[in-house]
Design a protein around this nucleic acid. Sequence first.
RNA 1: GGAAGAGUGGCCGAGUGGUUUAAGGCGCACGCCUGGAAAGUGUGUUGAGUCGAAAGGCUCUCGCAGGUUCAAAUCCUGUCUCUUCCGCCA
Length: 434
Amino acid sequence: MMDIKYIRDNAEKVQQNNVNKGYGNLSVEELLDLDNERRDLQTQVDELREQRNQISAQMKNGKPDQDLIDQGKQIKIQLSEREEYLRATDEKFMELLKKFPNMALDSVPVGLTEDENVEVKRVGDQPKFDFTPLNHAELAIKRGWLDQERAVKVAGSRFVYMKGDLARLEFAMFQFGIDTLTDPEKIREIIEGAGLTGKVSEIPFTFVLPPAVAKTAVFEATGRLNRAETTYKIEDEDLWLNASAEHTLSPMYLDEILDEKDLPIRLVGYTTAFRREAGTYGKDTEGFFRLHQFNKLEMESFTTADKSYNEHLFMVAIQEYLMAQLKLPYRVLEKCTFDIGRPNAKGVDIEVWLPSQNKYRETHTADYITDFQTRAMKTRVRRENGDLKLAHTNDATAFSERPLIGIIENYQNADGTVTIPEVLRKYMGNKEVI
RNA sequence: GGAAGAGUGGCCGAGUGGUUUAAGGCGCACGCCUGGAAAGUGUGUUGAGUCGAAAGGCUCUCGCAGGUUCAAAUCCUGUCUCUUCCGCCA
């Protein structure tokens, strides 16, 4: 959620940001009108309550006074009318305010389609094959690793059974990710490699197995509840299935005041993610590129405002490190204003090279969210100087299932086998090929 | 899922309609006292909104949401969470 005080002071800039992020229909003027109305009403209500309290205080000492009781009754009537008006105005105000997107940093490229995303760099060589490479779905089905037909029978389209060595490889990859993120030595190595020494904390991540559901109000506070297109609701419960561990990690400190000396809090959470994928019919239907259900390892961190930007760069560095360790060819994109998403101030995507599609496809996102989530969640920090400030959150993918697609396509051999990336072999019984 | 009990400032805990602007204690912060400390002692110590240059004023906040009343931590209704017991269960 945006800071109304910031909007009051920066009306034009906020309106321009709305336009840049594809929310040009949201009017700052309309919001500020509601804000003024709301504050006027609040003052009126406060004054009436003050009168009521004064009358009540007079009544404490002596016997009940009919005159005071009558005055109190008058105030009660006026107050309930004003309060109702205030409640309705406040509701309209909040409804509109919650729709406002976070301010994009000035460095974020302005653009209203994903074509405006800017490629920052390419890393790793695209493999050359002396045979015609299969796409990941063909290969996985051929090897008995993927059963879509039976999944359709049981659960419907966009669900799969993942089996055998591919399923094992997935857990190997996740274990590799967990081992890396919880290892102080590896964290230091990544920070050094990214030139962030002294700029970010060197404390490792804590591995978390979080709930996979969140209550409506909590999910809304994350700014990620998208009823129409993404999120599944559990019938007869006030619960939604998470579409990422972010949705249950970021609200962990809801309504809490954190101590600065305990920061940063770095978490890496594993859950199964559920997405309705409404509006993507016909897109990426082959294999397991876009499913209603997939597993994901997600990073989340809580910092003070002055540390959060470097924390974001650190998370991107981690993502690059993981991809580089797997020796997958990838590229890094600076996402444009439209593509970074409503809660983001900045966003980076990492895409893996897919030989079958002859292009790079998204595997990782890093979200720089500033205080947009913590304002709604009331997650604050007691600074060392005693100030109370909103915490900042950063959120980023460690591994989803998509890098597996990159692995089996880039590491495939002519005979249909797949060479296992070196760093994963120890998790696969030291096998070199599956 | 059923039954009973309980939710009060950072923590413990008093409080069954108006001397509560939430007693008292612990912890914490800053003083006084002391050669220094302990003890003692004084002041302060939830968070939010709003007005104000500031000092400060006003309002709200006793799990949450409604209701009764001139007046609610206190009475009523709903709901959530926790504890104990029962049932079910990986």
